[in-house]
């Protein structure tokens, strides 16, 4: 499969801040890469380099087959960028915003108008198109911004924290639009601080912290990589909670937690924990309404990974001996 985005060893320094310290990124055409990291991790810097807005200090990057430094103009023909702040012109209407970009992309005025109308309809802004963008709600602005980045029908789209500051309903709207993009075959590079977002949208996730890639995998693989599954059981009758707790404690050899009044949860290792538990419950004739083996949430993965990279960084990167030491995580962060 062809790589739509291919970056090797990108570094960038701003004054005394090393924003990127050697980042590799790869995205196959038509796939979604989630770039995940806390504020200041270097996500935006990476996107700006890939969008030709910044030159890397060292390293190379090719987007849609073109070098971002030496063939910047060709790269710009292939990309669409939606920044962290909705970059629409507030004093222009929705239509004017899109027509302006269309004409800048060498469409005739007529073509640009047709393109604007089609995009506005697609993004549910057909009615609002005649209004000034400053009258738009936050969600509408994001949609207009996204529409603006699609005027040139780019094969690669960068979405830099597209849902930051949006309420959950608006966020779902944006997610739906990203899925629509993928359906038309667009390659998407999405940066986010929200693991839920990367989990929901990305085929693969690259975790960045302090300008370095600290993990790269599928969402599922990432969760597995950090290990630690959780078994959750909800007995049909509240009276069975104590008996179930005893069984879980025996199977796992760990302390059982009770996140809700009728729900029990325990960390387990190994795949046989689930089958053993099921067999014991059946033998005791206990009915359950819910029983599941859960991989760690991406939040847990994330904090585990970023906490680890902080500690290794603080220890001078000498070794990874702190890996199993979970207790210092909070303090180190």
């Amino acid at each position: 499969m062809a790589l739509a985005i291919e970056a090797h060893g990108l570094t960038k320094r701003f004054g005394r801040t090393q924003a990127l310290a050697g980042v590799d990124l790869e995205v196959e055409a038509g796939r979604v890469l989630g770039v995940l990291g806390p504020n200041g991790a270097g996500k935006t810097t990476a996107v700006r380099i890939l969008a030709t807005l910044l030159r890397p200090d060292s390293g190379t990057a090719r987007v849609a087959g073109h070098d971002v430094v030496h063939e910047a103009a060709r790269v710009r023909r292939a990309i669409g960028l939606t920044g962290q702040y909705a970059s629409v012109d507030e004093d222009l209407t929705g239509v004017e915003n899109l027509v302006m970009i269309g004409t800048l992309l060498d469409l005739s005025t007529r073509e640009a108008k047709a393109r604007a109308a089609a995009l506005l309809a697609e993004f549910g802004l057909a009615e609002a198109g005649k209004r000034l963008a400053k009258t738009y709600s936050g969600g509408m602005r994001r949609r207009l911004d996204l529409a603006a980045s699609l005027v040139g029908d780019p094969s690669v789209v960068y979405l830099d924290e597209p849902t930051t500051g949006l309420d959950p309903a608006k966020r779902d709207d944006v997610w739906e639009m990203v899925r629509a993009l993928v359906r038309r075959g667009t390659t998407v590079l999405l940066t986010t601080q929200y693991l839920e977002e990367a989990d929901a949208l990305a085929d693969e996730i690259t975790v960045i912290d302090h300008g370095r890639v600290i993990a790269h995998d599928t969402p599922h693989g990432l969760k597995r990589q950090v290990g630690g599954q959780t078994l959750e059981v909800r007995p049909a009758s509240i009276d069975d909670v104590e008996r179930v707790a005893t069984i879980l404690a025996q199977v796992s050899g760990r302390a059982v937690e009770r996140p809700a009044r009728d729900l029990l949860s325990v960390p387990v290792t190994g795949d046989e924990a689930l089958t053993t538990t099921v067999a014991r419950l059946a033998a005791d004739g206990i009915r359950v309404t819910e029983l599941l083996l859960r991989l760690p949430s991406l939040d847990e993965v994330f904090y585990s990974l970023t906490g680890e990279s902080r500690r290794t960084a603080e220890a001078g990167g000498a070794d990874g001996a702190t890996r199993s030491d979970d207790t210092t995580e909070g303090k180190a962060a």
């Binding site: 807005l53 103009a73 962290q84 629409v88 970009i101 603006a148």
Partner: peptide, 13 residues
């Protein structure tokens, strides 16, 4: 500051 120029800079102009 408001990001409009980012868009211009990412366009082939």
């Amino acid at each position: 500051k408001n990001g409009v120029f980012d868009r211009f800079r990412s366009l082939p102009i």
